[in-house]
Design a protein around this nucleic acid. Structure first.
Lengths: 198, 198
DNA sequence: TCAGACATGTAACGTGTTACATGATTCT
DNA sequence: AGAATCATGTAACACGTTACATGTCTGA
């Protein structure tokens, strides 16, 4: 639902070929909406057909193995602007690790602490990376409107990673506290109590 | 990838029919891994075929329109326990609103502030709901291992919503600050500067 | 008996993922 | 000419979403 708009944004920032886009999605925009090259090519095809973008005229168009650069057309820009203002509810959280914690409440925490530790390290690394980018790109004084918005987005990334680091530390402490978590779940099985806990 | 495990967890907590599961996914587990009834029936079919769960013997099995309750078999419990300990990297952030902020840096912020306000209200409401659940289910002293883990998961939900509320307030302030954001993007278009900003 | 709720299921489609196929360009 | 890299593309499948179809049970 959002991928075409991510691509339009990227192309407006700088006209690119499919492979270039793919590389740019590995950092930058991809931090918040990742995509593989297959998705990108598929979507570029649709966008071109719908008249939102067009391929820049190259020497020839045999289209296989040949680099093909795209730029956004006015129609594409309009669609993007409309999407920015569109009413669209936030999606609920969808996180496998939280689910695993919950499952551990039923089948036991065996092996979970190691995973929590691993995730903690990964999130710390991501946090450091974001902070480095912030330092590099927004280290000094204020900048243009576009820059302020990009900084705001980066702040969201930083704060989110920050949340994970904090929460994972608490989770690790809790798991350590619960002993080595041997056995198949200490809690009363098949409990009949309230289920609405979250 | 995670849905079957979400279902196994739910069934271990309490054997249920497909529709009951669907209702329980609208709260509880669904706060962290939502699913529609079609997904659930599809997955129940697969799980039954693979021997992870079985239908409790009812009066008859004409299987259409007839309530069918499932319970987890030992094989299913083992699979779930294995999944809890499995090495599986966290998925990168995937959030449309962040993408829209980024797009606004290119095509202008027209209409965005209203959306930000709307999301802010939604996140505040969700936060209040989580806090109410926490008060109700974990208001008093300490509890069993399973309860402690569920509380931890709920804390993640609360902290996440808390993050969103804070960030959205900052975003709203920034957008207000930028003026009414008329026009098609104040920033320099087609900028050639660094793209790695996030 | 009819309406409404309960309950399970099909069909079709869009998006995301993985594996593989093919052609062009550059360097040795 | 061969290998490596650049570049675009196909195919198949898993998962999620939407719309619709079908059957059962309960109470007015």
């Amino acid at each position: 639902m959002s991928l075409p708009y991510a691509i339009l944004t990227a192309l407006l920032e700088k006209p690119s070929s499919g492979l270039e886009l793919t590389r740019r999605f590995d950092k930058s925009i991809g931090y918040f909406w990742s995509a593989t090259h297959q998705q990108i090519y598929r979507e570029l095809g649709k966008l071109e057909e719908s008249g939102a973008i067009r391929a820049l005229p190259g020497p020839t168009q045999p289209t296989r193995g040949q680099r093909k650069e795209y730029e956004v057309l006015p129609a594409g820009r309009d669609e993007l602007a409309a999407w920015v203002a569109k009413i669209e509810d936030p999606k609920p959280i969808r996180d496998a690790l939280l689910l695993r914690l919950r499952a551990a409440g039923v089948v036991g925490t065996q092996g979970l602490e190691a995973e929590v530790r691993r995730h903690l390290a990964l999130h710390r690394a991501q946090l450091a990376e974001y902070r480095a980018i912030e330092e590099r790109d927004f280290g000094d004084g204020r900048d243009s409107e576009g820059d302020r918005l990009r900084h705001l987005v980066l702040r969201a990334g930083i704060d989110l990673e920050n949340f994970w680091v904090g929460w994972l530390e608490a989770a690790r402490a809790e798991l350590a506290d619960m002993g080595t978590g041997v056995g198949t779940g200490t809690g009363t099985d098949a409990r009949t109590g309230p289920d609405s806990t979250a």
